[in-house]
Design a protein around this nucleic acid. Structure first.
Lengths: 203, 203
DNA sequence: TACTTTTGCTAACACTGTTAGGTAAAGGAA
DNA sequence: TTCCTTTACCTAACAGTGTTAGCAAAAGTA
């Protein structure tokens, strides 16, 4: 490969990330609803069709952000799990990390869980979501089984589903209808549930 | 009021409901994303601006459906509560009714909880959602307190939040990423939680 | 009959996502 | 350097979207 070809690949990559970061700025300031190809083109000072040299269509851009979101939250959940070896602490850390991610990056969360604009088609094009689910499920079930070694396998599965639906439920309720006085209450709900999952702990 | 004026009011009302039912058909067949004023106008065989004589804008139409959705689900939850006097049965009936409503009317549920197209602005224009929340909260807390007369008031509130976040969490997870093998598991999660809320029952 | 209100339309504006087709620059080969 | 091909980029357009201005015809009222 010639020297110029390398530079051109580099430039192409730079343009791609330029488009993405510019789009992200727009979304952060105006929300998913008002992200448009023309706004991106204006912001990067190129004409509209240039965008289509780097992304097949608008959905491809959204998909890229969806991927990013899942990658980031997976990383943070792994870190949270690794922050302790005590099952209850691990579950609390995971809940905290997921909660923090959701509200520090509402745009990601909205996109990932279909709470933004054109997310109906997101389903098929989002293997990341399935990967995320399986990963989280396995990880949490492992924690719960470690804490309750005598339990049947079904039981851990049940507790995982309960844990995860509480977490996701609290977050998505708060995200769609924010009420300011439920902060402590929500923490309490989670803590209560977690200690419930662990109360058969051997030690 | 003259006789013709009565008829004209009646006709105006008929046109309004015609617009709404036509829009509902479109949504049922093609989803929220592809509901447009022009499609409605085509379907009712009128020109586009006629729609604006009956609704201020598109959002007003969506809002009307949102209102409808909340009214219906409130009615069904009331019926569910009235179907028994045993607290555990009441909670189960409520969970069942809410679950059934969500999946029998996905379009309503998506609109009501911001899982469709232009729902970001829905917040301000949706007192129905607050009314619904307060009503359900009071109703469920009453059931839980009846079952656990010795408990502190806080405890019932906690249990309500847990119950509702599990219910909403399970539903919205299943709605955005449908997995077919979780039907029984989800029921089990709910039943388990409910018996947990009631286990201090006096009788 | 004359006047007013309502009803409904055509046409347009300002946006969307997307693409066809052309131009000029850049890269590689002789 | 010259020729050719590829890439980069643009203008202009198409088919949609929500929304509105302005006009013609019908209906109601006096």
């Amino acid at each position: 490969m010639s020297i110029t070809a390398e530079r051109r690949i580099r430039e192409k990559e730079a343009m791609r990330t330029n488009i993405l970061t510019t789009a992200w700025h727009i979304v952060k300031e105006e929300g998913w609803q008002s992200l448009s190809i023309r706004k991106i083109a204006d912001a990067i000072q190129y004409s509209v069709p240039v965008i289509y040299d780097y992304f097949e269509n608008k959905e491809a851009i959204l998909l890229e952000f969806g991927k990013q979101g899942f990658e980031r939250v997976i990383a943070e959940l792994k870190a949270a799990k690794a922050s302790s070896s005590d099952p209850a602490e691990q579950l609390k850390a995971i809940a905290d990390a997921y909660w923090a991610f959701a509200f520090a990056n509402k745009e990601y969360y909205q996109l990932m869980w279909g709470m933004s604009a054109p997310s109906c088609e997101m389903d098929k094009c989002m293997p990341e979501r399935s990967v995320f689910r399986d990963l989280v499920m396995a990880s949490i079930i492992e924690i719960i089984e470690k804490a309750n070694p005598g339990d049947a396998e079904n039981n851990a599965c049940l507790k995982y589903h309960t844990f995860w639906s509480i977490l996701h439920g609290l977050i998505s309720i708060k995200m769609v209808a924010p009420a300011d006085d439920t902060e402590q209450l929500n923490k309490l709900v989670l803590d209560d549930a977690i200690t419930g999952f662990i109360k058969n702990l051997k030690s």
